[in-house]
Simulated scan of single mutants.
Amino acid sequence: MSADKFSRRAFTGGIAALALARRVNAQGYAGLGETADGFARVTPGKTFSFPADHGPHPDFRIEWWYLTANLVDSAGAACGLQWTLFRQAAKPGPQGEGWANQQIWMAHAAVTRADTHRFNELFSRGGIGQANVEARPFAAWIDDWEMKGSEHSDDRTLSPVTLKASGTDFSYALTLEADRPVVLQGDGGYSRKSERGQASYYYSQPFYRARGMLTIDDKPVEVSGQAWMDREWSSQPLDADQTGWDWLSLHLATGDKLMLYRLRQKDGEDYPFGNWINAGGGTRMIVGSDIQMTPKATAEVAGRKLPVEWQIAIPSRSFSISCKPLNPRAWMGTGFAYWEGPISFTGTHDGVGYLELTGY
């Protein structure tokens, strides 16, 4: 590697780390409760447009392309993986060119088995071609990590796409296919995050079928299973007094899907919300008063006690399950540290999914 390339990469990472570290110490988890003067606002009634909304929205402060996959290997052993690309604007206003661009890109990749959890993190400054997202044909990348479609991909389903990422001791390469359109979360894609009006635009593709190769410690195995992609963008997705969230994406054995989150507040109150997605892609919102999310057991990870086992109930749907993690130590020791890992559940419904815990 040339000295020039190394110095630019180090500078890129340093700038990004400084900007992100400032936000870690700001209001709410990762600064997401910080006021958003000068940035675009999330309001009800948006008409989503694809493929345009698969691409970036630089007038908003933050957004992400977030994929998790529940897989089994050729021997039948459970495993999971995560691929996430984040974009955050350091300031509002017209987009600067080259190194003056205010967009900061960050990516996370992880693989999880019952016996191990591996992760990696990348940074980039916008405007230099090292990271970006294009809507058509879809391509999201940072360095050689990518989620990529083609001219033949369907904009409604965002399928098929390929996915790849790596770390020093792991890598994966998957093909993802779906036969149902993406699903708007919340009220037509308007996802409220507090009683005070904080919100995001939010849609998902929960119907991906995944297959490919997963390599850990130079030992490749074939894997297959289900994947879920979330797309969100906002300028202030949390209120200043919201400390973090507990989020679940669930693949039910019936073919239905369920998204649930509980946003935690400093006063001890919670803001829960959910969306039931039937096997055909139809959705029904679940109001907070009908959601019971009860931590049942904790694990001590990275000096924190984390609620990694849950009892979840939705009485109106006669739904009651117990969730357990594949690996309680699935800690993401990244710039924004959090817990993220595959889970399984049993009860009135069986299945697998992912759990994310932030702000602990």
Rank of each mutant, 00 (worst) to 15 (best):
G28P: 04
A36G: 01
T294K: 05
I142W: 02
A135C: 10
D267I: 09
R61Y: 02
P295A: 14
R317E: 03
V308C: 05
E134Q: 14
A19E: 13
A178C: 11
L260W: 03
L71E: 07
A302F: 02
T35E: 08
L214A: 10
A140P: 12
K148A: 14
A337M: 00
G197E: 12
D187Q: 12
G31Y: 00
E300V: 13
S224R: 15
G31L: 01
R22A: 07
A90M: 04
R87I: 06
F86D: 05
A52K: 12
I291N: 03
T47R: 11
S316F: 04
K46T: 10
G341A: 08
Q185P: 03
S159V: 10
D241F: 03
K91C: 05
I104L: 04
A210W: 13
W65V: 09
W83E: 02
M147F: 02
H349E: 15
R304K: 15
D218W: 02
A19P: 00
S316Q: 15
W64Y: 08
N70H: 10
D155Y: 12
L81C: 10
G186K: 08
C323T: 15
G149I: 14
C79Q: 13
E34Y: 00
S153G: 05
G129Q: 08
G351N: 11
A21P: 00
T116H: 09
P206Q: 06
H117I: 01
K5Q: 14
A69T: 11
A297V: 00
T68C: 04
S289N: 11
H349P: 02
P160L: 06
W64Q: 08
L18I: 02
F345R: 14
D239Y: 00
A199T: 02
P58K: 03
G274D: 09
L248T: 07
G225Y: 02
R125D: 01
E340C: 00
A253H: 13
S7H: 13
R317F: 09
V72C: 04
S166H: 12
G38S: 13
L260H: 04
W310V: 04
F345G: 14
I291T: 07
R9C: 06
W145S: 07
V308H: 09
M259T: 03
G353W: 10
L214I: 12
D230H: 11
A26W: 01
R22S: 02
G281P: 14
R209N: 11
G189H: 13
W339G: 02
M106D: 01
G303V: 01
R8W: 04
A75D: 15
P181R: 01
G126E: 09
G341V: 07
D217P: 05
W145Y: 10
A110R: 01
F11S: 13
A135P: 08
A140T: 08
F60C: 10
N275K: 05
P181E: 04
T254W: 06
V161R: 09
L176V: 07
S191F: 08
G96D: 00
S322V: 13
G126C: 13
W339E: 01
V183H: 11
I286K: 00
Q205T: 03
G76N: 04
P237G: 05
D115L: 00
A253S: 15
Y202W: 01
A240M: 14
Y172P: 11
E232Y: 01
T162Q: 11
D218V: 00
P56F: 02
A10H: 09
V183Y: 08
Y208K: 10
A227M: 06
R22H: 05
A52Q: 15
H349M: 06
Q88F: 05
R156F: 09
